[in-house]
Design a protein around this nucleic acid. Structure first.
Ligand code: MN
Ligand code: MN
Ligand code: ZN
Ligand code: ZN
Lengths: 133, 133
DNA sequence: TATTTTAAAGATAAATATTATCCTTTGATA
DNA sequence: TATCAAAGGATAATATTTATCTTTAAAATA
């Protein structure tokens, strides 16, 4: 169990017990939706407000402490910010897994065939996970 | 202006004036959000219900007549289903543009380094469009 | 073409999801 | 320890999406 006090402060976020618990939950579970996170936090803080979850998720995103991952045909999930990576999603069970693939070639190609100045690539691969096959 | 009557029927959708107008709007504008589509449809049908927009978007998605495109930090947009392609999004003006890039190599790599059975890839590239540079 | 059937439209209520507000509590700093 | 800005909790307000019910109309068919 990592102590996220310093990490939160680096992102200009006060290290409250609620935020430490959210950080910890994301560290342990990897990717979580708002509702799942809320349910989990309720077990730790029996009177935590859903508004606290939303306010923190929004603030943490603004400060780049966490990131949103938008998934086809499913609710968004959130994760602690880490080095750029892509995602694998299981259409059967909804499991979201990290995968690191070098997208530089793709980005270069896109730069050549378009007139955009490109600086970010978001890739989500869908399929069936090991467990559901 | 294309007549989408047959195309709608192929997807088991009755060709109502509202649906023809939605199809036409998507054909002309490429990618549209729910609210923008609703505003536009109101000009054509001054009493169209927002529920009609939602019901049609949902039904058209179920029948694969249209597709949803989830965009980082923005609302989803919808487009007529066409051959698989990726998207470019302008962080400045929100413009969404199609771009065709071969993702087979990426998908193959993902198959090798993961245990997923992968069948779909969704790529969104973010940056600044020509106009906003 | 007239009739019948069934799905879709419109109006609107209901349900969900998200944000704002207000007051109390607390983390950070000195 | 005292101060203060920020965060939490409770809850109201908005926003978004879906459900329900009645009317209308598209499509099938006689
Ligand atoms: Mn991830
Ligand atoms: Mn497109
Ligand atoms: Zn699975
Ligand atoms: Zn632009």
């Amino acid at each position: 169990m990592i102590n996220y006090t310093d990490e939160l402060r680096k992102h200009n976020l006060k290290a409250t017990p609620q935020r430490l618990a959210i950080s910890d939950a994301l560290y342990i579970n990897g990717h979580m939706s708002i509702e799942v996170l809320y349910e989990l936090m309720l077990k730790k803080f029996n009177s935590i407000s859903l508004a606290t979850i939303y306010k923190n998720i929004n603030l943490m995103m603004e400060n780049s402490f966490i990131q949103e991952v938008k998934i086809p045909n499913a609710k968004s999930v959130y994760e602690l910010t880490k080095t750029a990576h892509s995602h694998l999603v299981c259409d059967s069970c909804g499991e979201v897994e990290d995968i690191t693939i070098d997208l530089d070639a793709i980005i270069d190609e896109a730069k050549q065939i378009s007139s955009f100045k490109i600086d970010k690539a978001s890739l989500v691969l869908s399929g069936v996970c090991k467990n559901c096959q």
